[in-house]
Amino acid sequence: MTRVSFFGMVRDIIGEKEIQIQGGDSVESLLEALSGRYGVQFGEKVLKTPERDLALILLLNGRHIEHVGGLSAPVKEGDHLAVFPLVGGG
C-alpha cells in the first residue's frame, strides 16, 4: 500500500486529505490507480491533459519526482506520495 496525501485545490477536487492505495510500482501507475479511483474528475481536473503536462508538484517521500526518476520513479510498499497543485508565494 502507498500513502497518498492531497493538498490545495487537489484536496478540494477529490474531497479527501489522505488515502492508502494499492497502486503498482511506479509514480505513473500510482496516478493511473488514482484515476481509476476518482474517475474523470481526477483525470480532467488534476492531471488536466492526456500528455500529463502536469501542473502538479509530486513529492515522493519528500523528494520532487523529477529528482528520483520522474513518472517512472519506483514506488515501494510504505512509500508516501504528496500531491500538490502548482502553487507559489514568498
Binding site: 485545490m9 501542473a55 519528500g62 502553487v87 507559489g88 508565494g89
Partner: peptide, 24 residues
C-alpha cells in the same frame, strides 16, 4: 501560469506551509 493564474489567487501564499513541511 499555474502559480499566478490559479495557485496564488485561490490559496494565497499560505498554501506553501504544507509543501515546505513535506520537503522537510
Amino acid at each position: 501560469n499555474g502559480v499566478t493564474g490559479e495557485g496564488l489567487p485561490t490559496y494565497g501564499t499560505a498554501v506553501l506551509v504544507n509543501i515546505l513541511n513535506q520537503l522537510g
